[in-house]
Design a protein around this nucleic acid. Structure first.
Length: 333
DNA sequence: ATGGTTTTTACTGCGTC
DNA sequence: GACGCGGTAAAAACCAT
């Protein structure tokens, strides 16, 4: 295998052995000219290829000596304890920890390296060190957390086409959540998603849970759960979604006129006064209003199209828009 | 967990282009 | 015949308890 991947010439047989395996006689053979090595095949000059750790003949390209760097430990250990002592490498670094496991850890015991207990002065000092170490560690763990969350928020917001102020709001909410220690036990993903959802609603440009969870790596259930939790803990003022807020978005997705948009809003206002909506999904109501408005203004739309952009079933649109029209008729008559 | 309400799914029939 | 629309029944989802 290795023979084929290398285009340079390779010696066959005994010369292919690495430096470690060379026997005494090999040693003498290669060493005889001191530093001025000569290629055993063509007697050309031999040079060091530092990059590859090989010694190569200038003339014929013969690799006289390969792997001249010894990658093993330079010390020898005769038992496990000695190995531990002599080894200068620690635990492997890991990416699952924010600092790759390289942060400082201070033992909680007031003992020195030999297990003797510390004097009062030293104990004081260690206590201070622990305190500060902890402070720094949690501080930048929060920083990192925040950084990642903000990235997520940004990503989701732009995927949903949400304006900058929503991102701002979402970030602020997230910061608060972090400050109030709402994160432990919850995923960064989940909380940032919930923040985006809340921010969008507060800014009057709501997105449905479905839309939100589509761009998030978190399930709809978790978003909803986390959202409720965050709202409760932070005492956020989020009014129940107003159907009217969905209208502009639907209308523009369907390329309807301003007029239809206005009509849809009127329809909803009227319906609200009549109390037609109670427990009905705001999205469904909005979709129905948009559809009804399009009908009233003689603009062509299909229930299917509205149901598509509103992500609501046609049946629901039918039911709602009947109710809307009834309410309207009652007003006119 | 449960029961009531709303929404969705799936299907059918009707009229129009 | 495909399409848009209306209706229905049963299933599923949702919500408060």
């Amino acid at each position: 295998m290795s023979e084929k991947t290398h285009t340079r010439r390779r010696p066959a047989g005994r010369d292919r052995r690495t430096a470690h395996e060379r026997t005494q006689e090999d040693e003498e053979e290669t060493e005889q000219g001191g530093d001025e090595l000569v290629c055993p095949e063509c007697s050309g000059n031999v040079i060091q290829d530092e990059e590859h750790g090989e010694t190569v003949c200038e003339e014929c390209g013969l690799v006289v000596e390969e792997d001249s760097v010894d990658r093993g430990p330079e010390w020898r250990a005769f038992d496990a304890a000695e190995k531990d002592q002599k080894s200068r490498v620690g635990a492997p670094t890991t990416n699952t920890m924010h600092d790759k496991g390289l942060s400082t850890n201070i033992d909680w015991r007031d003992q020195d390296a030999y297990g003797r207990s510390l004097g009062a002065r030293q104990r004081q000092k260690m206590r201070r060190l622990r305190k500060w170490n902890e402070r720094f560690r949690t501080r930048d763990s929060k920083e990192r957390n925040l950084k990642q969350a903000l990235g997520e928020i940004d990503r989701m917001a732009s995927a949903l086409g949400l304006p900058d102020n929503v991102r701002e709001t979402a970030s602020v909410i997230y910061r608060r959540a972090l400050d109030e220690d709402l994160l432990p036990g919850r995923s960064i993903e989940g909380v940032s998603t919930a923040c985006v959802y809340a921010a969008a609603r507060m800014a009057g440009v709501p997105r449905s849970l479905d839309e939100i969870s589509d761009v998030s790596r978190v399930s709809k259930d978790e978003v909803a759960r986390t959202y409720r939790y965050v709202v409760r803990e932070l005492k956020l003022e989020v009014k129940p979604a107003d159907p009217e807020q969905y209208v502009p978005r639907f209308a523009s997705s369907l390329e309807l006129s301003e007029e239809s948009e206005m009509r849809a809003k009127q329809l909803l206002k009227n319906a609200k006064e009549k109390g037609v909506h109670s427990g009905k999904s705001p999205v469904g109501l909005a979709a129905a209003a948009v559809y009804a408005a399009a009908l009233l203004t003689n603009e062509k739309t299909t229930q299917a199209a509205v149901s598509e952009v509103a992500d609501i079933s046609e049946v629901t649109i039918r039911n709602r828009y009947h109710e809307l029209l009834e309410a309207e008729d009652g007003l006119i008559a």
